[in-house]
Each structure stands twice: as structure tokens, then as C-alpha cells.
Amino acid sequence: MTAEQIIQQILFFISAALTLGSAVMVVATRKLIQAALWLIVSLFGVAVLYALLDASFLVVVQVVVYIGAIAILFIFAVMLTQRDQRDKGPQLNKSWVLAALVGLATFGGLTFLVSSWTGFGAAAAPIPAGTVDMVADLGTALVSVDQYVLPFEVASVLLLAALIGAIYVAYNRK
């Protein structure tokens, strides 16, 4: 392995640990806003993973949509709740052993599936530099009649449904 690949591996492990560790903190912390801030750290870790894969569009979309919009929405939602935001109850209920077992079983099963995949140890093929603009390709694919134009328009309808539904639920003018 070259120095570049080793560094990429190290960065991958750091950002994966950051993502998972802050995800644990989201459920472990007792202040709601702190949980939201840990969630942001976790989402940022995912953005770093995308950056390591050179997926520029996904990096910026991750930051713009998840950190810039969804996390802010969470924080606004938290500020709508009761004044005392500190959760004082126990953080685990009686069936935590069962939940842990199911979680471990799922993890084990997934690890088994992934390890039996042959492409696991192979290095990814490098992206030819400067020859393709992946965002332009994505755009062309989204609007070509023989490709994804229908999903593109349906996405708009889906967003419309989400907006109307959310406003209907959240906003009841008396």
C-alpha cells in the first residue's frame, strides 16, 4: 500500500469512529439540544466518508440538507417542547438485554454476509481524473426520457406531499 492509501484507511477509521461514537452520544446524553448537536457531528462524519470517496455532490448535499436543514429543524422542534429539557428518567427499560442480543445478532449476520463477498478485499478502481463530470452525468441521467425523468418528477410530487402533510399536521389555525 502507498502512503496515500494508508492515510485514507486511517482517515476512514477516524471518521467511522466519530460517526458511530457520536451516534451513541445522541442516545446517551440527557440534554435534548446536546443530543441534536451530537447528531450533527455524526452526520458530519458521514460527509467526511463521502469526501474520502471523492463523491463531491454527496458531500455538499449531506451538509446542506442534513446539517443545514434537518438538524436545524430538529433544534427548532426541541425548542418547541417543554421548558425543562433534561430527561430525568432511566435511560434503559427492562428489555434492554433482549434488544442488545437482537442488535448483536443483526451485526453478526451482516458481518458474515459482507465477509463472504469476494470483492471485500479488492481496492476500488480509481476514477479517471478530469474526464468525467459526475454531476453533469447525474443531471443528464435525471432528465433523459429513457432514464430517470419519471422518478425526477415523482420526487417533486413526493416533496409536495411531504410539505402539505407536514403543514397540515404542524399547523392548525384556530
Binding site: V60, V61, V63, V64, I67, M134, V135
Partner: peptide, 13 residues
């Protein structure tokens, strides 16, 4: 190649 959205992302931060 996504410079314009990078500008928006920095605004989110």
C-alpha cells in the same frame, strides 16, 4: 465541481 453548493453548505455551518 460543486462549488456553488459548497457556498451554501458553508452558510449552513
Amino acid at each position: 465541481n460543486v462549488g456553488v453548493l459548497y457556498l451554501v453548505a458553508a452558510g449552513a455551518i
